[in-house]
Simulated scan of single mutants.
Amino acid sequence: MHQMIPTMRTRLQHVSLLSLKRVSSGGSTVKKKDERPINANRKSPDTPPTNIEELRTLLIDITKGDAPHSLGAKARAAFGRILDIQDSNDLLSITTLSERIETNPSTITRLAKNLGYPGFGAFQKALLATRLQQPGSFYLNQAQSALLNADQPIKQRAAQLCHENQANIDHFVENLDPKSFETAIRLIADARRVTIYGIRQFHSLAAFLAYGLRLIRADVSVLDSNALGAAEEIGAMGAGDVCIVISVAPYSRQVVAAAQVAHEQGLDVIAITDLASSPLVSTSKAAIFAPHQSSFISNSITSFFAVAECVINAVAASNSEETEQALIARQNLIKRLNVEDR
């Protein structure tokens, strides 16, 4: 085992470099069909998507190399940013949309045609098909108008951020792919071991998710929580184990590399991320998406904690009898250790 550790560390470093090249160059790796996340509402190759759900499914397929369409890295990134827009007003003209995602109108027109639409108008119709009915746009518009001036009361500033977080959670719920989510839950519930990887502020999310899952099942850990090395911990796992990776744009290089290595080691990778164009999608068996647009000074993670709670509850519900026994055993331990002061 001691002889394997340097080899595994070298392997992680090597794959990390390869992963970075793939992300920067827009290159893709051919994946097996059973490694695709399960998605609903797939369209035939000759029919362009008619709504936001079908567009998101198409981008996932393009990212995995399983679609008849081929897009470069910049086009995929633009596509992902368009799908993540919450304010429908930004979609009402090609000019406002191009300004919102910081690109040229001609780029959006080319993207629409590459996806099989005759022009922007048809693409716009698909984008607006469900978004005009989303309450998230109302929350975001209200929040944006709350802070036109920097000298507004602190309560209004707090209200803005809270409304934006409400919008993100609403957006997550309305666009949740139930089949992909159910796949993730089944993999977690049936796994021999589960490890969760997120760094910087998402390390706290990884710890929270690990704590919740440990309440209802054994052998859940945070990857590299003791700084002993991601390579060593991934190397100790194998087929039948699950690795949950968490990152949003700008994506953490270490997490992308770890996801690639875990996938190549035979682990089932579950991605919790923001966009269908995320580099974590290509190695995942299931992907769960949550938006994080807000006025917070860093990436907002409130919606991701909501995702974590949904995952924990769903795993608990997947086997209610075992969950009940696990919770009883945990409560007995808490009493014996006199943890709680009543």
Rank of each mutant, 00 (worst) to 15 (best):
V242D: 03
K64Y: 04
R131M: 09
R342T: 14
Q260E: 11
H163D: 09
I188Y: 02
T107D: 09
E54F: 08
K125M: 05
P153N: 10
L127V: 01
A317V: 07
T29C: 05
G235Y: 10
S16C: 08
R42I: 09
L91E: 01
L59C: 06
R22D: 13
A314I: 07
L18C: 01
L20Y: 00
P49Q: 00
A150G: 06
K179H: 05
Q134H: 12
T273S: 14
I101V: 13
L209Y: 02
L71P: 00
I94N: 01
C243D: 02
M237F: 10
A129Q: 05
R81P: 00
S28N: 05
V194N: 02
N332G: 13
A143F: 12
V307I: 15
L140C: 07
Q254D: 14
E99H: 13
S320Y: 07
A143E: 11
D274C: 12
A210H: 11
S98F: 04
S70I: 12
R157P: 00
T323P: 01
I196A: 07
V255W: 02
A207F: 04
I244P: 05
S320C: 09
A159G: 14
A191K: 06
R217P: 03
K31A: 08
K74S: 01
Q260C: 01
S28H: 12
H69G: 02
P48Q: 06
I5C: 12
V269A: 05
T96W: 02
D224A: 07
V242A: 07
T57K: 01
A112Q: 05
L128G: 02
C162K: 06
C243E: 03
Q254W: 03
F208K: 14
G27S: 14
T50F: 04
A167I: 10
I38N: 05
L215T: 08
N104T: 02
L275C: 13
A191I: 10
A287S: 15
I185C: 08
R336D: 15
A227T: 03
A189D: 07
K285P: 00
L92T: 10
